[in-house]
Design a protein around this nucleic acid. Sequence first.
DNA 1: AGCCTCCCCGCTCATATGAGCACCATCGGA
DNA 2: TCCGATGGTGCTCATATGAGCGGGGAGGCT
Lengths: 315, 315
Amino acid sequence: MESFGPAQLVLTASIARRYYVDGRSKVEIADEFRLSRFKVARLLDQARSSGLVRIEISHPGAIDLELSVQLQEALGLRRAIVVDTPEVDEPALRTQLGKAAADLLSEIVTAEDVLGLAWARAVTAMTEQLTTLAPVPVVQLTGALTRPDVEANSVELVRHTARLSGGPAYLFYAPLVVPDAATARALRQQPEVAEAISHFDSVSKAVVGLGSWAAGQSTLYDAMDEKACEQLEKRGVVADISGVFVDADGEPVQSRVTDRVIAINAEQMDKIDEVIAIPYGLAKVAAVRAAVRSGLVNGIVTHAPLAKALLNETN
Amino acid sequence: MESFGPAQLVLTASIARRYYVDGRSKVEIADEFRLSRFKVARLLDQARSSGLVRIEISHPGAIDLELSVQLQEALGLRRAIVVDTPEVDEPALRTQLGKAAADLLSEIVTAEDVLGLAWARAVTAMTEQLTTLAPVPVVQLTGALTRPDVEANSVELVRHTARLSGGPAYLFYAPLVVPDAATARALRQQPEVAEAISHFDSVSKAVVGLGSWAAGQSTLYDAMDEKACEQLEKRGVVADISGVFVDADGEPVQSRVTDRVIAINAEQMDKIDEVIAIPYGLAKVAAVRAAVRSGLVNGIVTHAPLAKALLNETN
DNA sequence: AGCCTCCCCGCTCATATGAGCACCATCGGA
DNA sequence: TCCGATGGTGCTCATATGAGCGGGGAGGCT
């Protein structure tokens, strides 16, 4: 069965060519070669199972489709886009991912959607690459974190996107995290904040940030007091999804710290149909896995090395 | 039409994977992805036409299937085997081609066949590589040419093959070319020669030599007197197929020289169902083309460079 | 030889598939 | 505003295809 003569081999190749390349039907091929269509079918089966015909899925672009599909299926994601880019410096990488995410967003957002945007550098990178967007309401999902290295803040991000889209913007000026729960409560009652929050339930698609709960791996971590960080770490927090903390099992972690965050909460995020994150860097493997396990994040735009790491470690 | 969003792209890739790699049906895929089967079909069409799925035919062996099929179709051959071997020295090449031809012969010769063998170095190389053969009569098609560089002659070649096969051998001792027609006539009436010739009509498969009509490109040319060579050349002879001379259009050339050759003639060869030649070397391009055009030769075992040359020059 | 087993072949019939068509939404121009 | 063009969708129906079956030939064993 495993060894064929050369005539058989060439015949099979010939038929495979006719079938796959020329796209003729098996009946036609059978007539041409004076074989029964069953024989043709068997030869084609044989050709495939013996590896004589190899089918590759690829395309001339930045997206590694093979990896994308694998990642999507392995993690059970609604969407996965893997950008095939050599490991360049972080800003360039963010731009690349931002472009891919922007393309994705333009494509999947329709006029019926309500778009939610959280604060994250990757999300900023995305909005910078965004050129067209259906006219939809854009809702700010988190308070702003002002960092010296980022000029745009959460507010600008939302405003810019809404302007591009032509839809209304629901935005507010407030920090992402405040020193105590009472302040947070007060802020949440501010009219603009309250209005934005009131729209959380109608958000149908969102782009969020995704941080690994460690120094330098989450802007929120870096912005928070050490005590709070440690407390959350002790509770098993592995990832923060734009202010929603989850542990390695994907369970949202409640804590006093949670109350100090001005952002969408786990329950609200869970109701959003599509939540897309744009993680990069191998340090985020565990965070991504946790976020996906939580079910909160169901779409990912990332780069090849992280995608491969996610696939490899998937036990 | 030519630009898709990444989501579309990944969806298409996903479907292509399911269809081509996993082998699921379009209906199943449609159910899985909540699409109509028509949509799935259209996406798959799109994927193929846009080059997203690429189908390659290859295999881990010495035979270049792609080239073989192309050659077969371009020249309208019954069989074409192209051995993919780096341009090595001639004897090694002959061995390689001999092996391929031997495999081919073992495969296609059945007990109902009658095998004809002409004299040629390549045919000798083939018989040396032959290990199994259905029990068939083996008929010597040409007289022998004794050359200092070849130990086996036409007779040995036939005897060896017949022994391997287990069938009867029809062989004779006579030179391939004699000084005059009268001698040839006399030789043809010798009992063994006459008997072999009487079997020419029943030969169903034959392996022949193929020479380009020029010095060093045909053992027959080299063995003949200069005058005869020139005369044939003047008549437009481009190739000799084991003693049958053909011009560039593939027309057999009759001449007084023809009568001096002890070998199968054009008419008899034309009746043979499969006639296989084993040409090699780029100098033989024109000869191969003539031989194929004549319709006398309908199977070829060769190497990649010659195959490519034949394909390129095919206007 | 006689028997058995395996394998190869081509059949039937249910199902999958493709070609062509009609419908509908969208969009640009009169 | 209306109209025609356009493209995308899913239908029908004829055709292609796959699963499973039985016949028969080749080869091995007793």
